[in-house]
Structures are given as structure tokens and as C-alpha cells.
């Protein structure tokens, strides 16, 4: 690995780390991060393939309110280095290793989020003393810390000798290797469960059932299924606003009022 490639990988790690807190540009998502790492390591195909598989697992990981989800940034960058790089782990092995990395990343972002409390106090004191530029500086410093919390572990991952990873890989029993491949196809259900858990209220379950059943018709691709879902949503919302008595008459009154005013 040349120095340029190493620096470029650390830049991707920095972007992913910053986006781990921002949740804006999506550099922390496996589809983006693994593709970039694969591209830098000269194997973009594996990067895309692994990114797609890891994305399916992390699909339900989201930061809501004050809750911190497992970290996709370190998981995606770290595991992609081992899958696309000279260690050549399989996609399934990469997925298995991504899970502990996600937990480490989660722990690190929690530490930074605590640390930033102190920085914000410092900023508030400085503002009271008349220094306003401190706001932008402290904000960007905190963001940099979030980037570094992925850059530093990534650098450590790059330091792990390839031979060590290959010895580790060769030492895995056959049943474990195949079991990991089985798990690769199944792990996504946890993510789906998280998403469903967030949305599900009693009246929504019929739509879930419709989705499951219609998915069995293989002639319908995902775009067609998405359009059916969209149509169902629009129909439901329209019917409901028509049948709900309190909003109906009010709207009519408003329209009458407006027409009277126009006259």
C-alpha cells in the first residue's frame, strides 16, 4: 500500500467519522464508505458488493433523540479494509467483524459526546467574556474530534499485519466459515425489526401483510412494489380526510368564507 493510498483511506475515515455525528452527507453509510475504500484499494467491485451487504445489516441503525445507534462509520471503513485489501477476507467474514467494530465505534462516539459538554461550557464562558468567534471554532473542533475517533482506529487497523489476518482466517474451522456465510443472509432481519419497531402501530400491520404477500409475485420488481405502496398510502390518507367529520365541514366553511370575501 502506497503512502498516498493510506492517506486517502484516512481521509475517507475522517469523512465517515464526521458524518457519524452529522448524519447529513451519508459518508458513514456502508454503501458509500465501503465503495470508496474498495476503489482506493483497487477493488471497487468487492467494495460495492461488501457495501451493499453491510448496508442491509445496518439499515435500521439510526440515532433518534438522545439514543446512539451502533456506529456504521468505523464498521464500514475498518471491515472494508480487510475485505478489499490484501487480507482478502470474504464478505461474510467482513460482516462478522463489522459488528464488534460497530460497538467500538459506538463507545468512542459516546466518549466524544461527553467530552463536547466541557467544550460547550468553555465556549459559553468565552462568549460571556465577549469572544463570539469561539462558537464556530469550538463547533468545528468538536466535529474534528468526531472525525478523529474513526481515523485513529482506522490507522491501527492498517497497522495490523496482513499475515496475522491470514493466519486468523486459515485458523477458522470450516463450520464457522460456512456459518458466517449463512448469517450474512440473515443478519439483516435485526435491522428490519428496528425499522418496523419504529413505525409499527396496530393499524399499520395490514400494509405490512400486503407487502409480504405481494413480494411473492416475482414479476413485480422493487419499483413496482414501491409504487403500489405509494398508491396505497395516498388512497388511505385521502379516504381518511374525507370520512373524518370534524375537518370536513370546517374546510367547507373556510371555502364559503373565502368565496364571500371575494364577492
Amino acid at each position: 500500500m502506497s503512502v498516498t493510498v493510506i492517506i486517502a483511506i484516512l481521509v475517507v475515515a475522517f469523512l465517515a467519522g464526521m458524518d457519524g455525528i452529522l448524519d447529513e452527507w451519508e459518508f458513514q453509510q456502508p454503501l458509500v464508505a465501503c465503495t470508496l475504500i474498495g476503489w482506493l484499494l483497487g477493488d471497487v467491485t468487492t467494495g460495492v458488493l461488501f457495501g451493499g451487504s453491510l448496508q442491509m445489516i445496518t439499515i435500521g441503525w439510526m440515532n433518534i433523540g438522545a439514543a446512539v445507534a451502533p456506529d456504521t462509520a468505523l464498521a464500514a471503513v475498518g471491515a472494508a479494509i480487510w475485505v478489499c485489501g490484501p487480507a482478502h477476507l470474504t464478505v461474510a467474514e467482513g460482516l462478522a467483524i463489522a459488528i464488534p467494530l460497530a460497538l467500538i465505534g459506538q463507545g468512542l462516539t459516546v466518549i466524544v459526546r461527553r467530552l463536547v459538554v466541557k467544550l460547550v461550557h468553555y465556549a459559553e464562558r468565552s462568549v460571556r467574556q465577549g469572544n463570539l468567534n469561539v462558537i464556530t471554532r469550538v463547533h468545528l473542533l468538536s466535529l474534528t474530534l468526531q472525525g478523529l475517533r474513526v481515523v485513529i482506529p482506522t490507522a491501527l487497523i492498517l497497522l495490523v499485519p496482513t499475515t496475522l489476518m491470514q493466519t486468523f482466517k486459515a485458523g477458522l474451522p470450516h463450520n464457522v466459515v460456512m456459518g458466517l456465510a449463512v448469517a450474512g443472509g440473515l443478519l439483516a432481519v435485526v435491522g428490519y425489526a428496528i425499522v418496523v419497531n419504529m413505525m409499527a402501530t396496530k393499524w399499520l400491520w395490514p400494509f405490512f401483510i400486503l407487502g409480504v404477500v405481494l413480494a411473492a409475485i416475482t414479476a413485480l420488481n422493487m419499483i413496482a412494489l414501491g409504487l403500489i405502496g405509494l398508491a396505497l398510502a395516498i388512497i388511505y390518507v385521502q379516504l381518511q380526510s374525507q370520512t373524518r367529520p370534524p375537518s370536513g365541514p370546517d374546510d367547507e366553511m373556510d371555502e364559503l368564507d373565502r368565496e364571500l370575501e371575494d364577492l
Binding site: Y192, F208, G211, V212, L214, A215, L225, L232
Partner: peptide, 12 residues
């Protein structure tokens, strides 16, 4: 929510 539940049902 309707769209989301439907699509999740189809994706699983």
C-alpha cells in the same frame, strides 16, 4: 408510515 411498512413487508 404506510409506505414504509409496506416496503419493509416486501423487502424482508
Amino acid at each position: 408510515s404506510i409506505l414504509g411498512m409496506f416496503v419493509m413487508g416486501a423487502v424482508i
